[in-house]
C-alpha cells in the first residue's frame, strides 16, 4: 500500500537554481494570498459580517444620540465609518492573529516559508480589503437609507482613498504585529488602539470638537487624514489640505510597511 507504487520523485526539483525575481515574488504573493484566505476560511464570512454589523451599528447608533441628527453630523459619521471598517481588520485583528501564532508557536513555520516578505505583506493587505470592503459599501448604503438628503457624492477618488487608507491601516497593524516581539504587548497595544481610535481621533466627529492640543497631535497621526481622504472622495465638500492628507497617510503607510518588513527580516 505504501511502498509498491512508483510515486513522483520527492527531490527532482532540487537541481534547478534558486528562485528569485518578479516571478518568485508573484508566485509567493499568489500562494500566500491563497494561504491567508484559507487560514481565515472559518472566520472570513463571520469577520466580514461583524464588520458590516459594526459599521451599520455606528451609522444607526450615533443617530440615536440626537432627537434629530444634524445632517452635517450624519455626514461625518457616515463618511467616517468606512475608515473604521478599513483599518479595523488590518490594524487590530491582524496583530492579534500574529500574537496567537506566536503563542502557539506556529509562527515559526509560517515565518520559515520561502516567500518574499513584501509579497506576504501585500497578500495580507488584500485579505484585509476583502474582509472590509463589503462593510464599507453596506454601511454607506444604510447611511443613505437612514439619513434622508445625505449629500453623498462618490467621486473616482474613492478608489485611491480607500486603497491607501486600508493599506496604511494594514501596514500599521503589520508593524505592530512584527516589530513587537511579545504577543501580550501586541494585544495590549491593539486594545489601546481600538479605544483611542474611537475616543480620541477625529474620524466620526470633526477635529474642531477636540481640545486644540489633541487636534494638533492628530494632525501628525494618520487617522484624521484617512477620514479626510475618504470623506473628500465621498462628498462634494471642499478639502483644501487633501494633498497633505495623502502625504501624511502615504508616509505612515510607507514607514510602517518598511518597519514591518524590516522587523520580519530581523534575526535576534
Amino acid at each position: 500500500m505504501t511502498t509498491t507504487a512508483t510515486p513522483p520523485s520527492a527531490v527532482g526539483h532540487l537541481v534547478p537554481a534558486l528562485r528569485a525575481g518578479a516571478a518568485y515574488w508573484f508566485s509567493g504573493f499568489r500562494a500566500m494570498l491563497a494561504w491567508h484566505l484559507a487560514s481565515l476560511r472559518l472566520w472570513l464570512v463571520v469577520l466580514a459580517a461583524v464588520q458590516v454589523l459594526s459599521g451599520v451599528g455606528f451609522v444607526l447608533g450615533i443617530g440615536l444620540f440626537f432627537d434629530e441628527i444634524p445632517l452635517a453630523s450624519a455626514l461625518f459619521v457616515s463618511t467616517g465609518v468606512p475608515v473604521v471598517n478599513l483599518v479595523m481588520v488590518g490594524m487590530v485583528l491582524g496583530p492579534q492573529l500574529v500574537a496567537d501564532q506566536k503563542v502557539t508557536h506556529s509562527f515559526d513555520f509560517i515565518h520559515a516559508l520561502p516567500v518574499p516578505r513584501t509579497a506576504s505583506a501585500l497578500a495580507w493587505y488584500v485579505v484585509c480589503l476583502v474582509a472590509s470592503l463589503p462593510a464599507v459599501a453596506i454601511s454607506l448604503g444604510v447611511a443613505v437609507w437612514r439619513y434622508e438628503g445625505l449629500p453623498l457624492a462618490i467621486t473616482p477618488d474613492v478608489v485611491p482613498a480607500l486603497l491607501l487608507t486600508g493599506f496604511a491601516g494594514t501596514m500599521l497593524g503589520y508593524a505592530i504585529a512584527h516589530a513587537i516581539t511579545n504577543p501580550m504587548v501586541t494585544r495590549l497595544v491593539t486594545q489601546f488602539l481600538v479605544f483611542a481610535l474611537f475616543a480620541f481621533t477625529p474620524i466620526l466627529f470633526a477635529a474642531s470638537q477636540m481640545p486644540p492640543w489633541l487636534a494638533t497631535v492628530n494632525s501628525w497621526l494618520p487617522f484624521r487624514h484617512m477620514a479626510d481622504l475618504v470623506r473628500a472622495s465621498l462628498t462634494d465638500l471642499p478639502h483644501p489640505d487633501l494633498a497633505v492628507s495623502y502625504a501624511v497617510v502615504g508616509a505612515w503607510a510607507v514607514v510602517c510597511a518598511a518597519l514591518a518588513v524590516r522587523a520580519l527580516g530581523r534575526r535576534r
Binding site: 534558486l18 528562485r19 484559507a38 487560514s39 481565515l40 476560511r41 472559518l42 472566520w43 501564532q101 502557539t104 508557536h105 506556529s106 515559526d108 513555520f109 509560517i110 520559515a112 516559508l113 520561502p114 516567500v115
Partner: peptide, 16 residues
C-alpha cells in the same frame, strides 16, 4: 528558507 524545509515541534496552523 528555500533550501530548508522545516517541521516545527508545534502543530501546524491548519485548523481552517
Amino acid at each position: 528558507r528555500q533550501l530548508c524545509s522545516y517541521l516545527p515541534q508545534a502543530q501546524m496552523p491548519i485548523d481552517s
